[in-house]
Nucleic acid binder design. Structure first.
Lengths: 81, 81
DNA sequence: GACTAATGTAATATATTTATCACATAATAT
DNA sequence: ATATTATGTGATAAATATATTACATTAGTC
């Protein structure tokens, strides 16, 4: 099963940004930011780009797509395949 | 104006893949692949990831988001802002 | 020229992201 | 304990990526 996790929370903490503040910077609703952070959906490339840039990172540093080897869904993370 | 261009065509040529073949590899319709290649829309992060991996590249190598400094639309490239 | 493969376009339908708004819980401070 | 701020959830609506199908055009070959 392929899943996505993000380092948004960690990076937000580093820059002392609240979800709301980051959402504003990126021009997105707080809910979208929240769901993004929890890996609950598969954002558009441009949104991912803006989030990464706002956190002084690259897309691949912030959004981590991985195959965990299992075949059963795990929690409420986004199921990509 | 922020726009996106891609190096898909160039990389496809390097690996001698047709749009159709790459679309199959990535599990997407040929039309989606075509529009993606021309930067006509803003793919999901996971799709961008799969395309990049299929072309042995990173997302940031394949999808190039840039601000060209102008304020008027140019051609039919995707207008991201 | 005709033939074929590859690329491009158009119309419509479906799926999923994203917005909006309202409320619930957690954490922290006073 | 009560404010206050941050985080989380639910329902519904809007926007847009993507699928599907069929046809048009270009490039290359015979």
């Amino acid at each position: 099963m392929i899943k996505m996790r993000t380092r948004i929370k960690e990076l937000r903490a580093r820059y002392e940004l609240t979800q709301d503040e980051l959402a504003d910077i990126v021009n997105v609703s707080r809910r979208t930011m929240l769901y993004l952070e929890k890996g609950k959906y598969n954002p558009s490339l441009f949104l991912a780009y803006k989030v990464a840039k706002s956190l002084h990172s690259t897309i691949e540093e912030v959004f981590i797509i991985e195959d965990d080897g299992t075949s059963s869904p795990d929690g409420d993370a986004l199921n990509l395949e």
